[in-house]
């Protein structure tokens, strides 16, 4: 057990973060059956910026990400201990409804997963189920704004009726982001959003992420340190289920406190 670093305090100490953190984790432990996947994670994540989780595969970064919008609820054997606070409110509290939580904490997955529906219906999916639009015009408006924000509008404006599965990989991923934006979330979780894409598509997504950070709190899992360095303002390093170090990206990449971070970043393991 490493006690030399207290990442939570570390983050709050950094001058880059002035306002209250959007997401806070306090002593989060996660178990899959008898196996513990996360150990005592404490972390503050600021609003309106991109925070990257890095670390070798199987280190628990995705698990932690899925705790934030309670996606782990869908796995029967998964158990979460500790508190995760969104705007100071525990998301695992009894009176928090996962439906509302997930509407305000959107998620984008590793592999683009557009629904087998038209492009329009894909984006309209969230507003429809949540009843966000009171009439068709409003719905079209939401769809258009979302697609514009995801930078996809110009490419698909004339073929909204075509199936979303017919788009290219990068377009699909942007469609999925538009789908997430359409319900007006506050936080967007991204689980290795570019790992299934080619470099050009990746670059477009990265641009998009950079755009979006003005309005959203974006939390991103990535296995590419270069991407973390390029896109994010804050970085957290996970190793073997523990949060080793977190802080402003520059500091983590140039002057890490922990030896393991240093080793990982310089490519000694992982």
């Amino acid at each position: 057990m490493d006690t030399s670093v207290s990442p939570a305090t570390q983050t709050t100490d950094t001058p880059a973060v002035q306002q209250a953190p959007k997401v806070q984790a306090r002593k989060v432990n996660v178990f899959y059956g008898n196996k513990q996947a996360l150990f005592d994670v404490n972390l503050d994540i600021p609003d309106r910026s991109v925070t990257s989780f890095i670390g070798p595969s199987g280190c628990g970064k995705s698990t932690f990400l899925r705790c934030i919008n309670r996606m782990n609820d869908t796995i029967d054997i998964c158990r979460v201990e500790g508190d995760i606070l969104l705007d100071g409110k525990d998301v695992y509290a009894r009176d928090v409804d996962p439906v509302i939580l997930r509407a305000s904490v959107g998620m984008v997955f590793q592999k683009p997963n557009p629904f087998p529906k038209s492009i329009f219906d894909n984006v309209a999916y969230g507003p429809r189920i949540h009843g966000l639009a009171s009439n068709p015009e409003e719905l079209s408006e939401i769809v258009e704004t979302s697609l514009r924000r995801a930078g996809l509008w110009t490419e698909v404006a004339d073929r909204l009726d075509e199936p979303g599965t017919g788009l290219s990989g990068g377009q699909q991923q942007r469609l999925v982001i538009a789908r997430a934006i359409a319900v007006r979330p506050e936080v967007i979780l991204m689980d290795e959003p570019c790992s299934a894409l080619d470099p050009i598509a990746t670059a477009r997504i990265e641009e998009l992420i950079d755009d979006l950070r003005n309005n959203y709190c974006i939390i991103m899992v990535t296995h590419s340190m270069a991407q973390a360095a390029r896109v994010s303002q804050h970085t957290a390093f996970f190793h073997l289920g523990k949060l080793v170090e977190a802080g402003p990206t520059e500091q983590i990449f140039t002057n890490p406190n922990d030896k393991r971070t240093q080793d990982y970043i310089t490519g000694r393991f992982g």
Binding site: T74, R102, G106, N113, I129, H130, A180
Partner: peptide
């Protein structure tokens, strides 16, 4: 499962996921 996850992540209930995503698929 990715399709289901996508729907749950949007805040859909299980029934909505089945009816609107799994069933059409």
């Amino acid at each position: 499962q990715a399709l289901r996850d996508g729907s749950y992540a949007m805040g859909a209930t299980q029934a909505e996921t089945v009816r609107n995503v799994v069933f059409p698929a």
